[in-house]
Simulated assay, not measured.
Amino acid sequence: MPASSSPLCLLRLSALGDVTHVVPLVRTLQRGFPGTPLHWVIDKAGHKLLDGLPGVSFHVYDKNSGLTGMRALRREFPPGRFDALLQMQVAARANLLSAFIPAKRRIGYDKSRSKDLHGLFINERIPDRPGIHVLDAIGSFCEPLGLKQTEVSWDLATPPEAHEWARAQWEEDGRPVLMISPCSSHQRRNWYAERHAALADHAASHGWRVVLCGGRSELERSTSDAILAAMKHPALDLVGKDTLKQLPALLARASLLVTPDSGP
């Protein structure tokens, strides 16, 4: 167990869905080691979503900055070494970045999840439990520190103004809300637009309000347009109209969310 004055460092740059899975781990560490400073190396998009998370000092790494950015990041850290680095990403760039983080203990993934020479950058591993969800795999990073994640708690530091924006998008009339976020960053994970439309029409015919949400990419816009064109009932189109801070507030208004394997 680290002393209260010995900081811990977490490294998880992306993607947004995986970044949100780190938040319950943060809560577990804060409950188990109250007063221990937590530092998190994260990418720009993840920081936009989680900026303001209580008790965490963020260090933002720009993936386009290469070795220059890694050296600059090293200068941001407090003097001395971290008690432990939780290296929760196995991609080559993240492995190289971890070498610029001074830490006594360097905890990484089990051998079955390792790739891109991950094992060369760590000196401890999480337990090998094949087939578990990524949320549970990330949660197990506290186990080498003597903790166990028994509670999953998300708090994405969503500001009040984001909730105000979400409340303004439609009037609360007691109808259940089906929210569809149709796209993952990997197109093969996405459902067909006509099937989303059929589901949305079925919900609308039973009195549900249908809301589409998503980012500003061309894929998300074209997919949402195809869903709307195939629907027989009206839907509220909010695709590309929210920010990352507003997205959790928007999702909180949904009775049911339909989405592929993606951040929402």
Rank of each mutant, 00 (worst) to 15 (best):
L178A: 00
F100H: 02
F77N: 13
R74P: 04
Y109D: 10
L86F: 07
V152H: 15
I107E: 02
K111Y: 06
R175F: 05
S114T: 01
K115G: 07
I101V: 12
D173G: 08
G146Q: 11
K104Q: 14
W165Q: 03
G108F: 01
R106C: 04
A162P: 07
P127Q: 08
G131V: 10
V177M: 00
D116E: 15
A94F: 09
V134F: 11
D128F: 02
W170E: 06
D155K: 11
L178D: 00
G108P: 12
D173H: 07
P78Y: 09
I107D: 00
Q89T: 07
D128W: 04
R167W: 07
A99V: 02
Y109L: 09
G139K: 13
L120V: 14
F121E: 01
E151C: 13
I126T: 15
W154V: 05
P160F: 00
W170P: 13
V134I: 14
A157V: 02
S114F: 02
F100Y: 05
L156P: 09
N95C: 14
G139W: 08
S140I: 01
I107M: 03
R93W: 03
A103W: 00
A157E: 00
A137I: 12
G174R: 00
D136K: 12
T150N: 15
Q87S: 14
T158F: 00
G139H: 13
H133A: 08
L85A: 04
V152C: 11
E171D: 10
G139C: 09
H118Q: 06
W165K: 08
R93P: 04
V90G: 08
P78S: 07
E164N: 03
A92M: 13
V134G: 03
S181Q: 15
Q149M: 15
F121S: 01
G108S: 06
R129W: 10
N123R: 00
S114W: 04
L147W: 06
